[in-house]
Design a protein around this nucleic acid. Structure first.
Lengths: 168, 168
DNA sequence: GTGGGGATTCCCATGATGGGAAGGTCAAGC
DNA sequence: GCTTGACCTTCCCATCATGGGAATCCCCAC
């Protein structure tokens, strides 16, 4: 790859970047840019004669907006709503705030679930000798030995946490 | 094939439940039981002449073990290891503890990520008027206006939180 | 004109789960 | 006996956001 970079071709006015440059500039992978286009989150960009996608500064800004929203763990669906409001100068900040608040609530419940799990497991691990002997309160609990604790009521498809990213 | 043996080999010991009963008894959906079997997490149960799966009390106990582990957010992979240790009476509790501790660490980092997201978004929402006016610090931040905050380095496929469950 | 990097599309995989179709089985009621 | 409905079977599809990779084409610097 390497951005040996066009020495000067783009004087920042109507840049006209290809997908690789738009990706580097926005922090959204080319794969994801195409995906966002396919699901209608972003409009179809113009193309060169050869079929290469061409992105304007404006479109790259939108991609940056989307990336930051993803970094806050917002779902694609909500991001779509936010982008719509962002572009709508007649919007009400109340609508934006409501979306954010809903997400905060979901993050909160997700956090509580995870904390409950962590606390339960941490307590069990703490009481486990962790030596060569086979006796282990962790296994005993999983066997059904302990009282039911952690683990919320099985969350409904949960509030996507964020972007999975590289490793998989 | 059914127990070719004497007319009543199973008097109540060796219950012999079908998948629906095993599901009800263990709290694991029939769909998941079949899935666990397909990926080798549990062994293939015996079948009736008609092809119905037949589960013994022992197998149902294993399913319960798996469900509780899932409730603690453990991945199928780790659960497989735990089941193996559980059945291995020569195990070292250290191995069990290590698995639990690794999971606690993953839960912890996940929690920190979510908290960072929540805090950022909560602060932004708080500073948003939430009225009819269009000005909104949330959108301003997403536009790239604010300093980079929350959102960890894009988690690597994260430590599955728990079981999605019913609603979806 | 050639080579290498980048673009294109298309398909597949992930993790853990559910939904549903098409067809076979069992048990209870008439 | 026969019907009915609940249950089982397998198989495929969808989720959510993302990456991997193949096959093919394009662009630009040499």
């Amino acid at each position: 790859m390497l951005i040996s970079g066009p020495p000067f071709r783009w004087h920042w006015t109507e840049t006209g970047m290809n997908i690789g440059q738009a990706s580097a500039a926005s922090g959204v992978s080319a794969k994801m840019i195409r995906y966002y286009e396919s699901i209608g989150l972003i409009p179809k960009p113009s193309r060169t004669d050869a079929g290469y996608r061409v992105y304007t500064e404006t479109e790259v800004r939108t991609l940056g907006f989307i990336r930051r929203a993803r970094d806050l763990g917002l779902s694609i669906e909500r991001i779509g709503l936010l982008v719509g409001l962002w572009l709508d100068h007649g919007r009400s900040s109340a609508d934006v705030k409501r979306i954010a608040t809903e997400h905060v609530a979901e993050l909160e419940s997700r956090i509580l679930e995870l904390i409950a799990m962590r606390d339960t497991l941490q307590a069990l691990a703490k009481s486990c000798h962790g030596d060569q002997r086979p006796e282990c309160p962790i296994l005993h609990e999983l066997e059904g030995g302990g009282a039911r604790r952690a683990a919320a009521p099985r969350r409904p498809a949960g509030p996507r946490p964020a972007a999975p990213g590289p490793a998989a």
